[in-house]
């Protein structure tokens, strides 16, 4: 059970489900996330089981490791797995020049699943999510509307994607996805930050 003092960026949003299972949208809140920057030369990659192939991910020891760049990976684990993961990584990385940064709250994860997930996401991204091109387990950093995000193909029986997005952009992206899903029955969502009232000092 997560700490009740804790609030995720999309805590104010309820999961959305379109009729007939066309698409579902929910936040996977509080996942532990760390960015590791280290040179893949040497033993580190092997020891840490880093996926060194571009755009791929690996599961290892209960965490998912995503390739973000040639010297950059993201480790994701359950909310309570962060401390352990950090400690373990730190152990391995002892004398190596690296950077391990907790970004658990810098980002959150939006999960979109269902038959229409592909069609909805293609309204937002120039990246090719076609199952023939973006295979299960693959990862890509790209644009979703006007925000950058990381997408992972987590499909099992049904299309399912995670989008990792910055805290401050999460609500925008949530609402934009919902907007794109309206034709399949997702309800419209009004983004936070509607500004009402005075907008200008001298107008007062």
């Amino acid at each position: 059970m997560s700490d009740p003092r804790r609030k995720s960026p999309l805590a104010h949003r309820k999961a959305l489900n379109a009729p007939d299972g066309a698409v579902s949208l929910r936040e996977r809140a509080f996942l532990a996330k760390f960015i590791l920057r280290v040179s893949a030369d040497g033993e580190v990659a092997e020891v840490l089981k880093l996926p060194v192939m571009a755009n791929t991910s690996l599961k290892h020891n209960g965490s998912t490791i995503l390739w973000l760049g040639p010297d950059e990976w993201m480790f994701m684990a359950a909310a309570d797995g962060g401390g352990e993961m950090k400690a373990r990584l730190g152990e391995f990385l002892g004398g190596v020049h690296h950077q391990l940064t907790d970004v658990s709250d810098h980002y959150t994860v939006i999960e979109i699943s269902g038959r229409k997930a592909y069609e909805i996401l293609m309204k937002l991204t120039p990246f090719d999510l076609h199952p023939g091109a973006f295979k299960i387990g693959h990862v890509a950093g790209t644009m979703f509307g006007k925000t950058a995000g990381l997408i992972i193909n987590r499909s099992v029986d049904m299309p399912e994607f995670d989008i990792i997005v910055r805290w401050s952009m999460a609500d925008y992206l949530w609402c934009l996805i919902a907007e794109a899903g309206r034709e399949f029955g997702l309800p419209a969502q009004e983004p936070v930050g509607q500004v009402r009232g005075l907008r200008y000092r001298e107008a007062s």
Partner: peptide
């Protein structure tokens, strides 16, 4: 050179 062919807007 790292990620492959992508749309220029990235």
């Amino acid at each position: 050179p790292y990620c492959g062919r992508r749309d220029g807007s990235e």
